[in-house]
Nucleic acid binder design. Sequence first.
DNA 1: CTGAAAGCGCTTACAG
DNA 2: CTGAAAGCGCTTACAG
Lengths: 336, 336
Amino acid sequence: MKQKITIRDVAREAGVSYQTVSRVINNKSELSPITKEHVQAVIRRMGYRPNRTARSLTTRRTLTVGFVVPTIANPFFAELTRGVQDAGRARGYHTFLCNTDWDPAEELELLHTLAAQPVDGIILTSSRLEDDALYAFADEFQPLVLGGRLPVEYPGIGRVETENEEGMLMAVAYLQGKGHTAIGYLAGPETAPTMSNALRENGYRKAMAACGLPNGDHWVRRATLNAEGGYLAAIELLAAQPELTALMAHNDLMAIGAIQACQEMGRRVPEECAIVGFNDIDLAAMANPPLTTIRLDRHRFGFEMMNLLLEMIDNPGQQFPVRTIPMDGLIMRKSG
Amino acid sequence: MKQKITIRDVAREAGVSYQTVSRVINNKSELSPITKEHVQAVIRRMGYRPNRTARSLTTRRTLTVGFVVPTIANPFFAELTRGVQDAGRARGYHTFLCNTDWDPAEELELLHTLAAQPVDGIILTSSRLEDDALYAFADEFQPLVLGGRLPVEYPGIGRVETENEEGMLMAVAYLQGKGHTAIGYLAGPETAPTMSNALRENGYRKAMAACGLPNGDHWVRRATLNAEGGYLAAIELLAAQPELTALMAHNDLMAIGAIQACQEMGRRVPEECAIVGFNDIDLAAMANPPLTTIRLDRHRFGFEMMNLLLEMIDNPGQQFPVRTIPMDGLIMRKSG
DNA sequence: CTGAAAGCGCTTACAG
DNA sequence: CTGAAAGCGCTTACAG
């Protein structure tokens, strides 16, 4: 590897002090146009790029953020990632991607590692941390942006939420319009009431009540939040509750698994069992049958989380109101 | 945010010089057990974590690597990412994830940004860079590990390849065994012959020839490497070449799109059109019908790329032989 | 075994 | 408008 070019090399080559080169790099105003252009030319010619590590040490900005997701293997989080990165790009921000595998202990360790990295801020999605642990961490490290969790008001924590309840209401009302009254729910694992699993499940229960439909624990089945979980939960639920004519799922992956379950049990979708997903991931349209689902703009969700984080980085100590990403409505396809 | 604790704070608290604290952190041998334990206790009590930026500046190690993928929205690359990160974790390595969107100009810019970050090494998957541009970059920055591209022997470039040709041969032979002779291919966009699109397509052509089956350009359709691309290509190909009784795809996503296309065209899968994918992503088993596909262990692929990169970081200047990830064989499900 | 000095590659006041 | 000094938080020879 060629010896890396430093600011001193450029200075020597340009015949100025290295501080002047620094000023050019940072686009300071107090510079004669002549030296500025000259130094810029030398920089270009030598292909010099400032070492970000050194820069970070004095500016205390790393231009780096941590992005913590349960698992990037879930396309929902992958699509979120794109939004986060796109929002950061214009400002020169890079992203450390971290997977927690839904494990709170792992999550906490990851957060501390990121804080020591150090990063300028952290975006934390679908956190499984207890409230106390979360607040304790926020006392040590800021700013923090939370997505997919009930927005708590706490210093140093920014919040972006989605309209889970509205989405569930749309889905239930739609199914009711199609004549369904026995609508089951494929839920995520049991978690604290502030976490997204609980928020969506609660949305389903409220929606059923609002539509005057019966509901209870016997129509809900919990499983992991992927296609296999949806498949397993649907098999069990449909066997135990044959009266069900429709199934809603916590997310599209689970809905895709449910289609698979119906297929195996010989129940035609949507004629013998309607299925509605949540999120509208890219693959939803390519399910067979194509998935009817509630659309959430994941790119926008990620984009807003990053934008909020950048604003918090620029305005330390300031508290920002919750940002809400509206649902884009029900996408009617073939599954329900 | 609490004022960050530095090595000097710990030293003062422990009553030693800060260099001694540094030695404890770095587990140097020349230390009395007593001071070592004492300092460790103070570190724990204060919750001190060394600032990695400062550390990097003197060690010239950032414990950070760049991982460049076309798009993380493709589950294949998401699954690869997990392997990369898992291999890095034990060594304390973090990963900058970067998306090129298949754009060579974007890719090159990203590589330079990563090099200036700086990172200790870069893993570059499915690169669309011309050979010359790749070599020029390798002259400036090392080590570099290449995945999903014809392995070139070049100083500072490590290579991990997969058995594309063997995989395609398995698939074609399997379909031939099922009685198919007219087997079409859903290819990626046209690229240079060293890139993975070309490698797999070439594998298909060689496999057809090896099995004594006719093949030619009229049975191949190019499209983007996602489900929608597969859908579009299959619609066109099946309309133009109705004699086709089976379709192979560059990857599983395209195969899932092809199932969708058959569905719409009223061709039953596999009876009226068999479909075989490539990679066996997690979702393949949840396709409807479940996808028959050639399995590649993505986690292992990612893991090996990272392991190779770490070895190269530890042994600068040394050249390593190509690493080959074998295919795990054909996974027989329902689509073909 | 432990302390004092120098330095990693930058930026930021401070002079002039 | 530009240069010389100090410092960011560490590690690494060098003394002792």
